[in-house]
Simulated assay, not measured.
Amino acid sequence: MATKFPPILTLQGAREAVIAATHRAIEIGIPMNIAIVDANLHLLLFERMEGAKITSIDIAINKAFTAAGHRVPTSVYKEAVWPGGAAFGIWNSNGGRFTTIAGGCPIVDVHGNVLGAIGCSTGTPAEDEDVATRGKEAIERVVRIGSKAKL
């Protein structure tokens, strides 16, 4: 009996996510830093649009790292990280890489396996999440269409 493996997020798949995210960033008029990590939290692709904030480079990468590692969008931590919140101080974990600012979204296959994540930064948290969501959705559409394909 053949073993079934989840799809793998490839460089080509990461490019598709970046293209979709870039188009959305252009639509809303906010240049972005866009990072894609694989399921092992390693940087697969990074793009800095002209005019994106240099100080947001690490933030975009860390948003992707956090979303893939915790398997949830970084926006879920908004209320929990305030003093007294259940996750207060969590940003100190993982060598300071854990990010609680919206803009990181896991990329998930049809079975719920996290294939990686996208992180975007330069705009407001809502703008960053909007752009990241567009990139994530582009890949997830491909996963639904061709479940045996490498992405």
Rank of each mutant, 00 (worst) to 15 (best):
R97F: 05
I54Y: 12
G104K: 00
D109Q: 12
T3S: 14
D130Y: 08
G123N: 09
N40Y: 08
I118A: 03
F5R: 15
G123F: 10
H42A: 12
V131N: 00
I145Y: 11
A20N: 07
L44H: 04
A80W: 10
Y77L: 03
R71I: 02
G13A: 08
S56V: 01
V143K: 07
G146C: 11
T122E: 06
L41N: 06
V143Y: 11
V131W: 04
A39I: 04
T124V: 09
L9N: 10
G96F: 04
T74R: 04
G112V: 06
K53R: 15
N62G: 02
M49T: 00
T10M: 08
S121E: 03
K78S: 10
A52L: 07
G112L: 09
N92K: 11
R141E: 15
A117K: 04
T124E: 10
P7G: 12
V131G: 01
I54Q: 13
R48H: 07
P7V: 12
M1D: 14
K63Q: 04
R97P: 06
N33A: 10
L44E: 06
L151I: 14
G103H: 04
A60G: 04
F88L: 03
F46K: 06
S56I: 01
W91N: 12
G29D: 09
L9S: 05
I8S: 13
H70E: 12
T74Y: 02
T133N: 10
I59W: 02
K136V: 10
G85C: 11
D109T: 06
T124H: 13
T100Y: 08
M32T: 03
I34D: 03
H42D: 15
I36P: 07
M49H: 03
V110K: 12
D128L: 05
H42M: 14
A2L: 13
A138V: 02
D38E: 10
N62Q: 11
F88W: 15
A20E: 05
M49S: 02
F46P: 11
T99H: 00
F65G: 01
N94D: 11
T66L: 00
V110Y: 11
V81G: 02
A138S: 09
G95Q: 01
A17M: 11
R134L: 09
G104W: 01
A14M: 08
L115C: 03
G112N: 06
I61C: 12
E129N: 10
A80R: 13
E27R: 04
I34P: 00
A87E: 13
R15K: 15
E50T: 15
L11S: 12
P73R: 09
E140S: 09
A60E: 00
N94M: 10
R71S: 12
T66I: 01
E16F: 13
G146M: 12
I57M: 08
F88A: 13
